[in-house]
Write a protein that binds this DNA or RNA. Structure first.
Lengths: 165, 165
DNA sequence: ACTATTCTGTTCAATATTGAACATAAAGGA
DNA sequence: TCCTTTATGTTCAATATTGAACAGAATAGT
């Protein structure tokens, strides 16, 4: 009831606690990205590159498509970014003999070494800022976010179905 | 083989609960942005435009610089985006008579009307996904995030000082 | 009053990201 | 087998974002 009223009446949107609290989440995300970008500058890495490399550490041999899906970005984005990393000798793309369409991705030794250094930096930032929470809070935030992600993925699938119809 | 190497070199960064939980936060933010962008498409609005207009609803007459600071983006970003909104007749930029450097920003009636429609959409998404949390959780997430933001702003100021020195 | 410094907004080049259209490879159905 | 559909990666144009360098206006120190 309260929520429905708020949704209709314009002025009190900022006192909607869900709205207000989410704004804080978005702000935090934005600032983390900026801080990470700043600290990665000496390594000549941008955050999207790090995202890719982090995933390759865990999922060597993944295809570009699957990597894009994991990162929630478009395939074309991978097509743009991966050749850069390949030219720097950080990533290797090997054709899959079984399916000639797919390119399988691997970190080189150099890529792995750089990824390790970058991950240390990223973990340090996260560790620092998350020390503003108690372990219980941190866990609860994570749980809540995983449920929210699940809900958003539902919305996403629903939208895709509606669109294809 | 590959997995054993991982376990040795990196003592499982992925099991660091702070890291893991933050990943969920980042994923949620990313997906919200996408869902919002999709639902704003019919209004021909992008999320950065909405961010600007939302802030102008609350802070009419703000300067470009102050707006950029509120949004944690560069001044040049405002210089790029605002003329677009001005040409569409959604935003007005008036020179400040007291200080000839600054441009003060206002929503037009049309801009206000469009902002209202967009805000309803945004609030609906947030309301939907945050319904995956209890009110207590939602409040706790907000509190934790505000502390994290404060910590990140400290890091930011520290970095700026170090740089200027 | 004058100079140096700071502040506001702009320009510009570089990069990230997206969606649509495309080409090729694989899979499925008749 | 042949045709249709689906999947993977690429190309391309459009847009967002940034940081550095800049011009003009205001401020402070002298």
């Amino acid at each position: 009831m309260n929520e429905k009223q708020e949704a209709k009446t314009k002025p009190a949107m900022w006192e909607n606690s869900r709205f207000k609290n989410w704004v804080a989440v978005a702000r935090a995300c934005h600032l983390v990205q900026q801080e990470l970008a700043r600290q990665l500058r000496p390594l000549d890495l941008k955050t999207p590159h790090l995202d890719i490399m982090v995933n390759l550490v865990r999922s060597a041999g993944i295809s570009q498509q699957d990597l894009a899906r994991k990162l929630f970005v478009g395939r074309s984005n991978m097509t743009m970014l991966l050749p850069q990393l390949e030219k720097r000798g950080l990533v290797e793309r090997r054709a899959d003999p079984a399916d000639k369409r797919v390119l399988r991705l691997y970190l080189t030794a150099e890529g792995r070494a750089l990824a390790d250094r970058a991950i240390v930096i990223q973990a340090a930032i996260i560790d620092d800022m998350m020390s503003a929470t108690t372990p219980e809070e941190c866990e609860m935030v994570g749980d809540a976010m995983r449920r929210i992600v699940a809900r958003l993925l539902e919305m996403q699938s629903a939208a895709e179905e509606t669109e294809s119809e």
